[in-house]
């Protein structure tokens, strides 16, 4: 075997191993995080974590019931903002948009998707917290909701585009208006994809901390209504993890585990929905 041949084989094997190694790193990071969280979080996770309020410093026990409910309320508010705007915006792009304006909308959506989450927080802080002079669930929900819009718009647009044009023509040819065609034929046909997109965006913003720090802030107690500071899992993790108490560290691990579990369930659920997507008629 000549030197060139051996060298070529060596490079081949080396590069193959290198790419495989990087792929392995990618996979193992998730499992490393999962394992670590399961180990530390699992130990601290108990029933009280889901049902009790946080205890004052020094007392052991207690839970994060308020933060779990708080995260739920924030996500609900976020959905009220992000889901209608995101879905209807996507419908516009896929079904009604012309050339120029659609290009501008699509480009802006991509830019909005790249805006750092802390900047979204400042935005909500400026338009809600400053005029009202206090932190509130509303402000946090708005910040998260705005972050949902870009992904919801693009996934809705993609799902609607995957619906064959022949279905639209079939409805239009029956004397159906454009909007009714979209609402009664195209959107139902694309519903799985749209729901998947919404679940993915929800999973994404569920873990956001930065935009909540100075909008929803946090709360050690139950917050009634929507107009008060409210606790959330990510902010609790942040607060507890940097505190100097071992008990709080354990609680932070437990909260991390719960949050990750929620996000994973949403993600896996969304992917199951996609894989069972409908096919359109016979080829």
């Amino acid at each position: 075997m000549s030197f060139r041949t051996r060298w070529r084989k060596f490079v081949n094997v080396f590069m193959l191993s290198l790419t495989g190694l990087c792929a392995l790193v990618t996979v193992s990071i998730l499992f490393f995080i999962l394992g670590y969280l399961l180990w530390y979080g699992g130990k601290s996770l108990n029933w009280a974590f889901f049902t009790h309020l946080p205890t004052p410093v020094g007392e052991t026990g207690g839970g994060m019931a308020n933060a779990i409910v708080g995260s739920g309320k924030l996500l609900l508010l976020a959905s009220l903002v992000g889901v209608p705007v995101g879905i209807l915006g996507g419908v516009y792009l896929a079904e009604f948009g012309g050339q120029t304006f659609s290009f501008v909308v699509r480009y802006t959506t991509d830019l909005l998707n790249g805006v750092p989450s802390i900047v979204m927080g400042i935005f909500a802080y400026t338009i809600i917290v400053l005029p009202m002079h206090h932190f509130s669930a509303l402000a946090g929900g708005l910040a998260l909701g705005v972050m949902m819009i870009p992904i919801a718009v693009r996934t809705t647009e993609e799902s609607l585009r995957s619906v064959p044009g022949t279905l639209r023509e079939g409805a239009l040819a029956l004397g159906t208006s454009k909007w009714k065609t979209v609402a009664t034929v195209v959107m139902p046909a694309a519903m799985r994809g749209i729901v998947t997109g919404v679940m993915l965006t929800l999973a994404r913003v569920a873990g956001e901390t930065a935009p909540l720090l100075f909008t929803a802030f946090s709360n050690r107690f139950w917050s009634s209504g929507w107009n008060q500071p409210i606790a959330s899992l990510p902010v609790m993790i942040y607060t507890y993890a940097i505190a100097p108490y071992d008990d709080w560290h354990r609680q932070a691990w437990a909260a991390g585990l719960v949050l990750l579990a929620l996000v994973l369930v949403a993600n896996i659920g969304a992917r199951l929905l996609v894989s069972r997507g409908i096919s359109f008629g016979k080829a």
Binding site: T166, L167, G175
Partner: peptide
């Protein structure tokens, strides 16, 4: 146009039933 298409129907090259 909506009224016109109610009076003049159409059947297409490929069967296009709705997913219903």
């Amino acid at each position: 146009v909506v009224g016109l298409r109610r009076r003049v129907g159409m059947v297409f090259q490929k069967p296009n039933p709705f997913p219903k």
